[in-house]
């Protein structure tokens, strides 16, 4: 069972209070983009065995979105952070790199 810290309301939220919203930091490609870019934006998702950045919504709590970095294999949670950002915080990325030197990075 996952327990994530909601950065919006500051509580430790159980998985059953949350809604998973898929991969984080997806760049939108709308009108004017190529077919390939648009298809990528709509359908192509990472499915890593290891470090993953995700969007979550505290649906039974404050109702706000946030981001979480966690490991899909060990279920370790590296941290959660605000959804109002385009990239994960550097300190979090560095901490994950330190733990997993072989990790290819978030982008």
């Amino acid at each position: 069972m996952l327990t994530l810290h909601c950065p919006n309301c500051g509580v430790m939220a159980d998985e059953t209070e949350l809604h998973a919203e898929g991969e984080a930091h997806i760049k939108r490609f709308g009108p004017g983009s190529s077919d390939e870019e648009f298809e990528n934006y709509l359908f192509e998702r990472k499915n890593p065995k290891g470090v993953h950045f995700e969007r979550w919504r505290h649906v039974a709590g404050c109702g706000k979105y946030f981001h979480a970095a966690r490991n899909t294999m060990t279920l370790e949670v590296y941290g959660t952070y605000s959804a109002q950002t385009l990239a994960p915080p550097k300190t979090l990325v560095n901490a994950i790199k330190k733990k997993h030197p072989e990790w290819e990075g978030w982008a």
Binding site: C9, V11, A13, T16, E17, A60, G61
Partner: peptide, 22 residues
């Protein structure tokens, strides 16, 4: 509720779910 009720004290508001509803 999945909230940590043992950690609650007067003065704390906890928004969560009660069985299947908010």
């Amino acid at each position: 509720s999945p909230a940590d009720v043992s950690a609650l004290a007067p003065g704390i508001m906890r928004r969560t779910r009660l069985a299947q509803v908010a």
